[in-house]
Amino acid sequence: MTTRDRITSRAPQGSVPVFDGDPLFLYLVRHADDNLILAQRLSQWVSWAPELEEDIALANLALDFLGVARALYTYAGEVEGRGRTEDDLAMLRTEREFTNVLLVEQPNGDFAHTMARQLFFDAYQLGLWEALSSSADATLGGIAAKALKEARYHFRHSSTWVIRLGDGTEESHRRMQAGIDALWRFVGELFVGDDVEAAMVEAGVGVDPSTLQEAWEERVSDVVSQATLSVPDDPFQRMGGRVGFHSEHLGHLLAEMQWMQRAYPGMEW
């Protein structure tokens, strides 16, 4: 693991990631975390959507991401071999042990913010799952192939909304642009690899995220221009999710999500 210090460099000087282990386990868990945290965010929309059809759609998205998270956690638990279940991994790790990208933990904001977050992440997952469909790890490949089908629907849903809102009314245009501006600083992290990814690429299991960037930019800029919007030219990109250096939002999200397992430890539900 020669690139270990590249990881820590994204967190403050002196901080050390609190996780360690089999790269495959870490690889599966980080993607599971992405999907779980986004599912949790989307599920917060239920009963708050702009119309009933969208309540159904957002719940559907939440279910899809949750389903992928569960499959990945379960497999990660098997790989780790210590008997941890999907719930142990989801409910009993701390803020510093979660390795999701910062984008997915950002609050829902208004519907435009949520759709901007979704566009960025859906466009990323299209490339990710496509690449991982041919993973040398058959289990991961199977999960990816199924997720790819869902990702195509997700991307259609978010891109359609971004275009509608961008090219809708003056107010929706303003809100959609604000959503894109607010979340742009979290997209760079999607494409920066570390030693975990390097090990997975070498094993033919994973994908180098930097190879996903070009197609992502094409997809997103196509949607953004159809929506009569633009992306900010601020080069600043915030990093740290993959080493557990999160925004302040994640702790609150976990406090809510993990409440039952923390308050009533070791029970069956």
């Binding site: 949790q40 917060q44 719940a59 949750l66 409910m91 809510e256 009533y264």
Partner: peptide, 18 residues
């Protein structure tokens, strides 16, 4: 939904509300 005790219960509850 956001506090369901397990991931399976969460999925079942989301599907139900949907």
């Amino acid at each position: 939904i956001t506090r369901a005790p397990t991931l399976e219960r969460k999925a079942i509850l989301i599907a139900k509300v949907q």
